[in-house]
Amino acid sequence: MTLSLNSILNSTKLYELKWIHRRLTDIFDEEAAPYLLDCAVMMTGILHMHFRYHSATTPKTQRTSKDVVHYCINRLVELVHQVTKNKEQLLDPQLLDQWAPDQMKEEDLRIETLEQSLFNLKQLIFKHSSEDEQKKHKERLDFLNEELVQQTEPRTFLIDSIIGSLTIDAKPEWQKQLSEFKASVLIFLKDSD
């Protein structure tokens, strides 16, 4: 049983590392690519330690979790520029392919497809909604993201309910993207079983 738990924890850490690495490759240019796995490793450590100490001092400070993340990202940008300039590399990004089993790669792809579909929907909704509507829809979309991506067993009745309410409020400008999102949710939930 302990081995299974360790296995799950290691897979989760690896997924987090791969996710951060993928986001960094989206942000930084090709020149930085060889150094981004090292930077992803450093980012996980920086975030982990800052949140550990931030939570210990929260009553004494007005800084939010968002402030901590912004601070860490600003430090990371400096690190990426520095290691790229100095051409310093410890870990080859190709190691991620060796570390990740094929099943995990498929899961990554499903999650990434779902997240991209949700992002596209969010963009259109915000473009074609009033400020009040944006707030209401943001809460719904954030809930869907959390329920679908972060829960080990997504609650389909809640997901269906939120998607139903989005469908009722849908405007012509984003109905097509909502349909695409619904399809990606169905595929995601089907493949999760």
Results as ranks from 00 to 15, higher is better:
98 Q>G: 13
5 L>I: 15
115 E>L: 11
58 T>Q: 09
144 L>G: 09
76 L>E: 01
60 K>E: 00
187 I>D: 01
170 A>I: 01
135 K>L: 14
113 T>P: 11
40 A>R: 01
184 S>T: 12
193 D>T: 14
164 G>Y: 00
25 T>R: 13
147 E>I: 05
1 M>C: 14
148 L>T: 04
171 K>W: 01
192 S>P: 01
14 L>I: 06
116 Q>H: 15
39 C>R: 02
91 L>R: 01
150 Q>N: 12
175 Q>G: 14
135 K>V: 15
169 D>Q: 14
138 K>H: 11
37 L>S: 02
150 Q>C: 09
32 A>V: 07
50 H>M: 12
168 I>S: 02
98 Q>T: 13
161 S>A: 05
39 C>Q: 03
94 Q>P: 00
48 H>P: 05
155 R>A: 09
49 M>P: 03
17 L>M: 04
92 D>P: 10
164 G>R: 00
191 D>C: 02
156 T>W: 02
67 D>W: 10
163 I>F: 06
106 E>I: 12
189 L>M: 15
104 M>F: 11
54 H>Y: 12
185 V>I: 12
14 L>E: 07
82 Q>Y: 08
170 A>F: 01
171 K>D: 03
162 I>F: 02
47 L>P: 08
129 S>A: 08
74 N>G: 06
60 K>T: 00
29 D>R: 10
1 M>N: 12
142 D>G: 09
48 H>F: 07
77 V>W: 09
128 H>T: 13
141 L>G: 02
18 K>G: 06
23 R>V: 00
28 F>Q: 00
107 E>N: 07
130 S>E: 13
143 F>K: 09
41 V>D: 04
30 E>V: 14
64 T>Q: 05
61 T>D: 04
59 P>C: 00
20 I>V: 06
160 D>F: 00
84 T>P: 12
12 T>G: 08
172 P>V: 02
56 A>C: 05
79 L>F: 06
107 E>I: 10
86 N>F: 08
178 L>K: 05
47 L>F: 07
136 K>H: 04
121 L>G: 08
36 L>G: 02
9 L>G: 08
189 L>A: 09
102 D>G: 01
158 L>F: 15
50 H>D: 09
67 D>V: 09
50 H>Q: 14
131 E>W: 05
21 H>M: 00
152 T>K: 11
175 Q>R: 12
144 L>Q: 07
16 E>L: 01
99 W>P: 07
85 K>H: 14
163 I>M: 13
133 E>C: 04
187 I>C: 00
46 I>Q: 05
67 D>R: 07
193 D>V: 13
70 H>E: 14
37 L>D: 02
157 F>L: 03
157 F>W: 04
27 I>F: 15
177 Q>G: 09
50 H>W: 09
191 D>P: 00
91 L>N: 03
96 L>T: 13
111 I>A: 10
183 A>T: 12
34 P>C: 04
75 R>T: 07
82 Q>H: 11
126 F>Y: 08
98 Q>A: 14
139 E>D: 13
91 L>E: 02
169 D>T: 11
149 V>G: 08
152 T>E: 13
107 E>S: 10
145 N>L: 15
90 L>K: 06
128 H>R: 12
54 H>I: 03
97 D>W: 07
184 S>P: 07
127 K>I: 10
130 S>H: 12
155 R>W: 06
149 V>E: 06
1 M>R: 15
114 L>S: 03
98 Q>R: 14
124 L>K: 13
128 H>K: 11
56 A>T: 03
174 W>R: 15
